[in-house]
Design a protein around this nucleic acid. Structure first.
Lengths: 203, 203, 203, 203
DNA sequence: GATGAATGAGTGTTCATTCAT
DNA sequence: AATGAATGAACACTCATTCAT
């Protein structure tokens, strides 16, 4: 973020490290990738990783942040063009699936429990962004807790379908999207159930 | 030295190890718990862990399998008493939340990606059991793929709510259950969308 | 040796252990065979090994001693029948090769450097026995050092041939024996060269 | 901490490790020397051993190879100057004994069964080199199997004498050499006995 | 005699991190 | 910026040995 990518080729190495790290971390997770291997894949001395990132954990955070930023951006860009809330919602879901199919990496990062609190925060934040983005489609700028929770749970439904779809076991892409789209209003309609503990509820 | 080598204590030690392992693994995950620490908590020489389980990974598998079995059993027992399908479904959800609140361990295991393929299989199997149990409530003995997928996604919705509830951020227990209960028929009703890729769909 | 093998089946276990140990030690050596494995092969609790032998090393010594005794006995028995010294010598060589082909075990023990000084002593003693046996064929009861050394070296020649023969690379059994037989008198004839350091020698 | 991390010292450390390993391995064998001890003797962190050699076994192989190469070289250099085959043979034997007396290490490695197949191969190769070198003295460039076997056995004779000489039990150095020298033609003359199995032989 | 639970010292190996160059 | 030698803490796993039963 704060790092300026000047025209100098010096940052080449930095980028190569980030790329290598992304590849390897998504394949086997944080603990199973020695810095040595990242450096080897990047074609760089492994000491350089510490020169740039100081710590293996910080490298992981950097890589995670990048992936999260990328995902957030995809969501935003994809939904800007659409007009109606429903179209935006569909665009959101579609962009997510497209992102996943193209950069499986981001998704893997997403679902993996973060190695560090810092990393959990990164993905928690990204998810929160998505939730607010979605609710924004419908004019909700400062959503109540129940609405946020409901949306998050709805994303849980959608995520599970995406996971199934990725594994390519016959679940159709459009089925995932349509199913999620149809469920959304239902979930919203009963979001109030997830509200303050003392609120009256009955089946 | 200070340890009494009674023969009757044989299974005692094994159990103590399993308990200690369960506790520690759920707190920090597989890789972050040295066998030494498990042994210390169990009040046992760390060599004994290998005497019984041969490998740290196998201990983890054992512990996982136990937790999964426990969860499956809880589901089954809790739902037997209920009469109507709806009551059974509610009993299922409630028993799950109770189990989670009492044995947070099981749940954490559940959501964490398994360290080993063997472990992923264990939890995948448990989840599959739950899905078939639920569908069985409604007389579906040999469910189609779309139905299974839909149920799995519905559990994704429910899981997310449970996670929120666990963290105690104001989401009411009953809200989680009622919300999930109401969603179930809706999800079932559109399960067909998740069927064979060439099936006709439209919003 | 000192152990009385009474009719009781109790010593069955002891024998089974010795047999198992012999098998395994000759396959992979002292350090690479866990007592546990010996016990498993013997069908016995591994604690029993220590009950009988006290130490893994002592078990190894026992096994070595047995093998050495067996070899010595074979040599003696085989050469008793023969009449002339030359026939005895031939009988000695032949019996050795036969023993080797039947109980490769003994030979392996022989050539392996002993794990313990005690074990080296065992085989050193067996070799010494063989040397004196051979020299005895020719009426030499109390051989001088040079004679002993020469005979030992001659056995080194023979051993190398036997090793080659065992590996079955086309060296004929009889060639090994005849070659060694013919060499013996030559070696004896120049044994004096290996005598006291200040003795006069010239080519 | 106290160690200077000079770049020039890079190969220094590697050498120090090899030297320390050679010393210790020849004293007590592969299995009885902890890497830790090698590192301590070399004045180096034990991690460095793995940095350079990856495995304890590979270090052992490296060390063995070096010793074997050294021995081969000694043989070659020592015999180049001599004119007649007989002088060359004598030079060979003498150089071997000199090498042994100076670097007992090489010899011990030699006679010990290798820990690894790789190591056995190394010494087998060195021995093969010696055999061909010796036969080369007499104009035999591509020796038949029987000749090779005979020479190997003759070296077995010689080895046994050297072993006796090393232990300093009164066997004169020159006796070892002269005795071996005189035996050589005899052994060669009957090498044919060790040939194809169906060849005719009689005493 | 026989078992196997229990111990704990020992060891090979990994790897993040430092730092002189 | 870049290298890679060097460190050392950490850890999984082995195994001889003991001992209560």
């Amino acid at each position: 973020m704060k790092r300026s990518r000047t025209k100098s080729g010096a940052t080449d190495s930095r980028d190569k490290i980030v790329q290598a790290a992304t590849t390897l971390f998504t394949q086997t997770g944080f603990q199973d990738v020695p810095v040595e291997e990242i450096a080897r894949l990047a074609g760089v001395a492994h000491g350089l990783v510490f020169h740039y990132f100081g710590t293996k954990a910080r490298l992981y955070e950097d890589v995670s942040q990048s992936a999260a930023d990328r995902l957030d951006l995809v969501h935003i860009k994809a939904t800007q063009a659409a007009k109606t809330p429903n179209d935006k919602l569909r665009a959101f879901l579609e962009s997510h699936m497209d992102a996943v199919s193209q950069r499986r990496a981001d998704y893997v990062f997403h679902s993996r429990g973060g190695a560090t609190p810092a990393i959990q925060a990164i993905w928690e934040n990204s998810r929160s962004n998505a939730i607010h983005l979605v609710l924004g489609f419908f004019g909700v700028a400062q959503p109540s807790v129940p609405l946020v929770v409901a949306t998050r749970a709805w994303l849980g439904y959608y995520d599970e379908l995406v996971l199934e779809w990725i594994q390519d076991r016959g679940v159709p892409r459009d089925g995932v999207i349509v199913s999620s789209l149809r469920l959304f209003p239902v979930v919203m309609a009963q979001a109030h159930l997830l509200g303050a503990k003392d609120a009256p509820q009955n089946l």
